[in-house]
Simulated assay, not measured.
Amino acid sequence: MEIVERGDIFFLYRPRVGETDPESLSDVQRFFVVLRPEHATKVRLLVIGRKRLPDAHEHERNWGFVGAIAGSAAALEKGLREETYDTKTRGRQHLPAARPAGEGRYLVTLLNGQLHLSYALELPERPSEVQRDFNIAPQASFALSVKNPEKPSPPGLGLGQAQEPDYPDRLQREFRGRRFAREDIKLLDVQGAEFILVGARTDPEKAYNVELDVEKEDERHSEMLRELKMAKSRHPIEPLFSGEWA
Rank of each mutant, 00 (worst) to 15 (best):
residue 113 G to P: 03
residue 201 R to N: 13
residue 73 A to Y: 04
residue 131 Q to F: 05
residue 88 K to Q: 13
residue 221 H to V: 15
residue 243 G to A: 14
residue 102 G to A: 14
residue 69 I to A: 02
residue 186 K to H: 09
residue 32 F to A: 02
residue 117 L to E: 00
residue 31 F to L: 09
residue 167 Y to E: 00
residue 102 G to Y: 08
residue 148 N to Q: 05
residue 133 D to G: 06
residue 130 V to K: 02
residue 213 D to K: 10
residue 200 A to S: 15
residue 154 P to R: 13
residue 207 A to E: 13
residue 187 L to E: 08
residue 15 P to G: 05
residue 238 E to A: 08
residue 11 F to P: 00
residue 216 K to Q: 14
residue 4 V to G: 07
residue 22 P to I: 02
residue 53 L to F: 04
residue 167 Y to T: 04
residue 239 P to F: 04
residue 65 F to A: 09
residue 121 L to Y: 00
residue 131 Q to S: 03
residue 224 M to V: 04
residue 208 Y to C: 05
residue 143 A to P: 03
residue 131 Q to H: 07
residue 203 D to W: 00
residue 116 H to I: 14
residue 71 G to R: 12
residue 73 A to K: 05
residue 10 F to Q: 00
residue 60 E to Y: 11
residue 181 A to W: 01
residue 176 R to S: 15
residue 86 D to C: 06
residue 158 G to N: 02
residue 39 H to M: 10
residue 48 I to R: 01
residue 182 R to W: 00
residue 187 L to N: 02
residue 35 L to P: 03
residue 207 A to T: 08
residue 213 D to N: 11
residue 14 R to G: 01
residue 21 D to H: 15
residue 229 K to S: 09
residue 134 F to Y: 07
residue 188 L to R: 12
residue 236 P to A: 10
residue 37 P to H: 06
residue 154 P to T: 09
residue 130 V to P: 01
residue 242 S to W: 11
residue 98 A to Q: 00
residue 131 Q to P: 03
residue 198 V to P: 00
residue 95 L to A: 09
residue 51 K to P: 07
residue 204 P to L: 02
residue 27 D to C: 06
residue 137 A to K: 07
residue 201 R to Y: 12
residue 41 T to I: 15
residue 109 T to G: 08
residue 175 F to C: 06
residue 241 F to K: 08
residue 173 R to N: 04
residue 75 A to D: 14
residue 45 L to N: 09
residue 18 G to I: 07
residue 214 V to K: 13
residue 3 I to R: 14
residue 9 I to D: 01
residue 49 G to F: 08
residue 197 L to N: 01
residue 184 D to W: 07
residue 61 R to Q: 05
residue 230 M to D: 04
residue 150 E to H: 13
residue 226 R to S: 15
residue 76 L to V: 09
residue 136 I to S: 03
residue 109 T to D: 10
residue 192 G to Q: 09
residue 191 Q to H: 09
residue 120 A to Y: 03
residue 206 K to A: 15
residue 77 E to S: 14
residue 111 L to D: 14
residue 6 R to L: 05
residue 75 A to F: 12
residue 124 P to D: 05
residue 210 V to C: 01
residue 13 Y to G: 02
residue 201 R to L: 09
residue 66 V to L: 08
residue 205 E to Y: 07
residue 87 T to H: 05
residue 182 R to Q: 14
residue 128 S to D: 10
residue 138 P to L: 07
residue 232 K to F: 11
residue 190 V to I: 14
residue 8 D to S: 15
